[in-house]
Simulated scan of single mutants.
Amino acid sequence: MGRAAGSGFLRLLLGLAAWGGPGGAAGTSPVCGCCPGPVRNGSSVAQYCRSHPALVLQGRCCLRGDVEQGLIEGLDLGNCSSPLLCAGFQAARRALLIDLTETPLENIPNATFRGFTRLQSISLPLALECPGGSVAWASVTTQGHSRTCRGQRNPCNSSGELAWLCPETSLCAPDGPGLFQCLCSGGHRGYKCLREGTFPLLLFYGTLGAVTTSLALLAWGTQRRKAKAS
């Protein structure tokens, strides 16, 4: 077997592994097959995937099968006829680039991209704005009927306006384009991180066990009396 044939065989094996692997695999998520046909030749996803030997094309996804089976690095849902995003779109939340051009999408709620912290490029129909608005991206360009948003900004670092939204007992953390979350710090927990100390697991599970045991004994006693009465 020649080097070229061996390389092709290896890529096939990686593709099969990625198709059935966890964490955004095409075999467990419908997003890679929700649009007919493979990744479009002219899409940014196809160009990116073919320029990186470790990546494989499978359905509408560009997968990294050699590092983490089924990890979706790129997603091309362009030229789909549905006005709605495919089911399982959240499976691509670790993708670096997404192409949604040439679709009849009319609106995408910003919360749809919650958790898409690795996203660095997304191409959309010209009628749609960038997720999180243009301020959430380093650059926004338009060409023909499409808009491309590149370089997702960290909302916690790029502006001090969000700092006051998180309590002093928490840290601001990015959670997608224009989105953030407040992570409790310094041993704080609970609503608005107002409680201190770790969660009392021993007390919680002890109480839960006692209540469960009491209910089980009560049910057993009730059933036993009914059995004797009959």
Rank of each mutant, 00 (worst) to 15 (best):
S7E: 15
S7W: 14
G8M: 08
G8R: 14
F9L: 15
L10F: 13
L10W: 14
L10Q: 13
L10C: 11
L10A: 15
L13T: 11
L13S: 12
L14T: 06
L14K: 06
G15H: 02
L16F: 07
A17W: 08
A17H: 08
A18L: 00
W19S: 08
G20K: 04
G21S: 14
P22M: 01
G24V: 07
G24M: 06
A25T: 06
A25W: 03
A26K: 03
G27Y: 06
T28K: 04
S29A: 09
S29M: 01
P30L: 01
P30M: 02
G33L: 00
C34R: 05
C34Y: 05
C34W: 07
C35L: 10
P36V: 10
P36S: 15
P36F: 10
G37D: 12
G37K: 11
P38K: 11
P38D: 15
V39K: 02
V39G: 06
R40A: 14
N41A: 13
G42S: 12
S43F: 12
S44T: 14
V45W: 04
V45L: 08
A46C: 06
Q47F: 09
Q47G: 08
Q47S: 14
C49N: 00
R50L: 13
R50N: 12
H52D: 13
H52A: 14
A54R: 14
L55S: 05
L55W: 10
L55V: 05
L57D: 00
L57E: 07
Q58E: 09
Q58S: 07
Q58H: 09
Q58C: 01
G59V: 08
C61K: 00
C61I: 06
C62N: 03
C62V: 02
C62R: 01
L63H: 00
L63Q: 01
G65H: 01
G65D: 03
D66A: 08
V67A: 14
Q69G: 13
Q69I: 00
G70R: 02
G70I: 02
G70Q: 01
G70V: 06
L71I: 03
I72M: 13
E73S: 10
G74H: 08
L75P: 14
D76S: 12
D76R: 11
D76Q: 13
L77G: 14
L77C: 14
N79A: 15
N79F: 14
